[in-house]
Nucleic acid binder design. Structure first.
Lengths: 228, 228
DNA sequence: CGATTGCTTGACCCCCATCAATCCTCGTGG
DNA sequence: CCACGAGGATTGATGGGGGTCAAGCAATCG
């Protein structure tokens, strides 16, 4: 099991504001686990007794709507922290986290983080900034969901994927999503998402090879996202 | 100009965690203003040099979508604070705040709040909890926008209005919204909102008299919101 | 008391959800 | 190594929800 104070991931999130001694203490009590693609890290309604720090891999954070369809709220890359909200307001999880690739995840017990929150104002402030940023994203997502067409949302999602996950060596998006996941991100039926994807392909905006997606024409995608 | 330490409103938000001396200091440097219905408190892109505390009245917080339609993100009642986000991450406002009734608003300069954030951990923690709660609401809204029909969303909105603003003496919802505002909350065209409202009226779920809305059959509304 | 703004209703049509059938892909076991 | 089954991907057909345009009506205000 690696040590927190040497973990590259700690540079990426709020944990970077912790002091060396705080990191050492956390490192001593954290647990590390491997999560296989498809496994559920935590589910709605569960009581989380700590937070998760993602060392590697990607997961989706989603919520069931009352009509039984899953809505993916966002995708979380390595270096991010999961479950801070439940920590802060001491409620059960409102969302579900599922691995969409094999992952390595560290679990930090509640009491450790709470004690740091109380003693280290920089850490609290950093968390506050993270949440402010998440809130801004959430507000923008609400506007998109409420006002944009499925086509616009798909274009925007592809641009977001590029910005957040980038390409691998072959100019292929470095994230593999099922068609169903894609549909559940933009909030539509699987068939609709598929139809639009193949339309984009025909128009030479993207290429498709199974789950491998390459974005060819970014300017065009941006125009589509704006409604042209 | 009233004093913060005597203001009833301070009981309702994060300011309640401030000490007496902190409140006195804030009270000394705050400015108070009356805002008329329809007036803009701040707009997208503006640089806010502090936060607003609502003493009385209601305002809408909205954002323009790229297709030119306004999306109302939420309604804010007296006792709430506006602009904490821009304070925390030091960015320009992402949203627009517009009075939908006559209001009285206090403005607290940035430096004052920042200094309290640094010195009073209870205050920071309280803000953190507020944001966690807002984030939860936002996530739930995303799911609703993405998955529910306009009819479901209208039903849900009416239930929310009742929970947040209650009735006046005549069992009329204690908030007056234009049809356009209603449409912009649930993310639809004005005509669609109107049509559904009159359908609800015909089914004896609500009554309408201009902007006066009374909710008659709450259980039925809940069923509609769930998709029946 | 006009005039401007907001409200209401009708007509039309397109986007997209849904159902159904087929095809593809990949892991498993014979 | 191949057959086969299961789940995912794709395409077609169809109907309804809801966006949009247009016209008439009510209400609010200078």
């Amino acid at each position: 099991m690696a040590k927190c104070e040497q973990c590259i991931v700690k540079q990426l999130n709020s944990l970077k504001t912790l002091t060396k001694s705080e990191l050492l203490r956390i490192s001593a009590c954290k647990t590390s686990q491997f999560v296989k693609k498809g496994d559920v890290i935590f589910d709605e309604g569960e009581h989380l007794n700590g937070v998760f720090c993602i060392s590697s891999g990607i997961c989706k954070v989603s919520k069931m709507s009352s009509n039984g369809r899953e809505q993916i709220i966002h995708l979380v890359n390595k270096g991010s922290i999961l479950g801070e909200r439940s920590l802060v307001n001491d409620e059960v999880a409102n969302l579900k986290a599922t691995a969409i690739s094999d992952m390595e995840v560290c679990f930090i017990p509640r009491e450790e983080i709470i004690s740091d929150l109380k003693k280290n104002p920089d850490f609290t402030m950093s968390l506050l900034k993270d949440m402010a940023s998440s809130l801004k994203n959430a507000d923008n997502t609400i506007v998109d969901m409420a006002q944009k067409t499925v086509k616009q949302r798909l274009a925007e999602m592809l641009l977001n994927l590029e910005a957040s996950f980038g390409y691998n060596s072959d100019h292929v998006l470095d994230i593999h999503l099922s068609r169903e996941d894609i549909a559940n991100i933009i909030g539509t039926a699987t068939e609709s998402a598929i139809r639009l994807l193949s339309e984009f392909k025909k128009d030479n905006v993207i290429t498709l090879k199974g789950k491998n997606i390459s974005i060819i024409d970014i300017p065009k995608l941006k125009k589509i996202a704006q409604g042209f």
